[in-house]
Amino acid sequence: MKADSDFQILGRLKSQVSIIFDGNAVQVRQGGNLAAELLAAGITTFRRTPKSGAQRGPFCMMGACYDCLVSIDGIVRQSCMLTAEDGLVVERAGPGAGTDE
C-alpha cells in the first residue's frame, strides 16, 4: 500500500509478499484479492483496450465488466477473480502489454 493511494487498507497490515506488475516489484498482502491489492498499491491502469488503446481499471469488482484484465503466464484474466500469491508475475493486458509507461 502506498500512503498516497486512492484506496486505503483498513487496520494493520498482514504479511506482505512481493509480486511483479509490469516489471516492477509491488508489495501486496499474501492471499489478497489481486485487483484490490493492485489498487491499494496505487495502480490505476490495468489494461489498454484493443480498439483505441484507452486505459482501463477495475469497474465492477465482481467478474462482470472485464475491465480489470491482466495477463498472467500468457493468459488474459480478470484480476478481480484472482488471488495475490508471492512471486506472481502480472502484466497489463492489451496493446503494449509488458512495456513500461
Binding site: S5, D6, F7, Q8, I9, L10, G11, G32, N33, A36, E37, L39, A40, T44, T45, F46, A54, Q55, R56, G57, P58, F59, C60, M61, M62, D67
Partner: peptide, 25 residues
C-alpha cells in the same frame, strides 16, 4: 470508462472482500 470510475457496489466489495476503502470518493 476512465480508470478511477467504479460502481458503488465495487467499492463495497473492496470493503467486504479486502478491507480496502476508496478515499475521497
Amino acid at each position: 470508462t476512465l480508470p478511477g470510475v467504479m460502481t458503488a457496489g465495487a467499492a463495497q466489495i473492496l470493503l467486504k472482500q479486502s478491507g480496502v476503502a476508496a478515499a475521497n470518493a
